[in-house]
Design a protein around this nucleic acid. Sequence first.
RNA 1: UGGGGUGUCGUCAAGUGGUAAGACACGGGCUUUUGGAGCCCGCAUUCGGAGGUUCGAAUCCUCCCACCCCAGCCA
Length: 575
Amino acid sequence: MNTPDSTPSLDFIRSIISEDLKANKNKGQVHTRFPPEPNGYLHIGHAKSICLNFGIATEFGGLCNLRFDDTNPIKEEEEFVESIKKDVRWLGFDWEDRLYYASDYFDQLYEYAIQLIKNGKAYVDDLTADEIREYRGTLTEPGRESPYRTRSVEENLDLFARMRAGEFKDGSRVLRAKIHMASPNLNMRDPVLYRVLHAAHHRTGKKWCIYPMYDFTHGQSDSIEGITHSLCTLEFEDHRPLYDWFVNELKIFTPQQIEFARLNLSYTVMSKRKLMELVEGGYVTGWDDPRLPTISGMRRRGYTAESIRNFCERIGVAKRGSMVDMALLEYSIREDMNKRAQRVMAVLRPIRVVIDNYPEDETEYLDAENNPEDPGMGSRKLPFSRVLFIERDDFREDPPKKFFRLAPGREVRLKHAYYIKCKGMVKDEKTGELIELHCTYDPKTRGGWSDDGRKVRGTLHWVSAAHSIEAEVRLYDHLFLKPNPSDEKDGSDFKDHLNPNSLETLTSCRVEPTLADAAPGMGLQFLRLGYFCVDSVDSSTNRLVFNRTVTLRDTWAKIEKTQKPKMPGKRKKAV
RNA sequence: UGGGGUGUCGUCAAGUGGUAAGACACGGGCUUUUGGAGCCCGCAUUCGGAGGUUCGAAUCCUCCCACCCCAGCCA
């Protein structure tokens, strides 16, 4: 439209902030925060929020805090705060000295509560949880006032002090705000501010036996820290009036809460409850299972922080509930790895190839570039000898149309090596199973070049049998078969849609010798196959284990899929 | 038949009265010692629907429809 292409459009949050800055709101300061509850591991949805909050701070010359929203001691653990800090740092963000905890504000929050009581805006309620629910009314009916709502300030002060002193049992009394029991917004029907909870907190220990609720904590914490823009997800839209009510009643600095849509990704689940169910039910191996959308799982899978940041930038920020295509995430990691990953030879499902006209005891070393996208990455030497392994899938006794890999009588190029021609097959007499191939090589094609104008369509990866190393390779695929497994409207459970083949483990793979000392976590491209990384948990020099991060784009697979199956008994694509 | 939100290409997403950006996906071509990468081209006469205002509407008005969130002493 009439947008000058020199000014990239801002998302709605950045637009608001931009306007605020122009109006000199908050004296031109921008201060955000990422406020996780330490009750689980971070996932890609959190990454969106992290990139948003830290990104905005950087772009507008502001600051971003890391704050743990730790007001519910029975769900929170130190283990989670450590993993969260690790993940945020790994993603490339720095909160410097601004690490805070909502529990740092417990004393202040308690004072705020007293202030509200003194102003007649809060009262101690003796109703049970069930009664409170009953009195709250429903979506279409107004609520009723609690009989304890009219207690005197003195009595409320006394009772609240005794709540804190530990005189009352869990659940026996709560402190409530006195707002409006007939409000159409349920959050305003005298919300609970404090509950009695005789539980040790991971940071404050046994100092408290009453704990503030989220609504009574979040806005005030933002206010205390001078947060100018408090970014949260859509489900808190209904809480905004309450958020504002507290800071207004307390007459403290008022941050602006802005809500955006949380991330949904196809073929996976994002809710903490579902993730927990998968981990605890043993459907995956742990929170860092490479199939999970957790930051730790993705890191182990081989995703780079940069690729995740790029992804978060690409998906944008808006208020529309959406489902982002997993293909975009995969694009982001391919794009990043294409630039940085060293290319290596790895044969996942090996078939022996004997080069009949190659000398028995000879080994020669061939030059192989490490990355065609980046000559600066140099080259390495690859051993070549009489007996090789190539990919089983790269040979077809009866090749379909457009298949230009190896077949009887056909010639292909071995990457960085020679042209070879298939002269014969050896099969198991009983089963008819292919055991090895016999080929001849053309010595004049060393390096993979021919000067006689001969055209070879296929180029295969390979390893020298005697020099290659055995490795285990884990092939990961989508965790779910359905794009939206969380859609349970048809009565199904999300676990019904788990992909039974989300992990295939190959144990007799052969990789080139340079991989002998590959460092844990290192990302590589297995030529023609995909991007892989050395598993950071199970791999060692004695037992190499690789995880497939993502496949390469596979045009041939697409062609083959659209071809009519011409023969029965055609080899099915491995699952 | 309460309140709060959202509806623009298969998926995200710009656009804020001047005549539908971009990305992924998809299709085609070129190129290529990865059927990778790269490059080029194509891909919404139309913006949930129906009316209306206007010279002109995805943008304004009216009505309707669909979907999401809220009845924790969770966050």
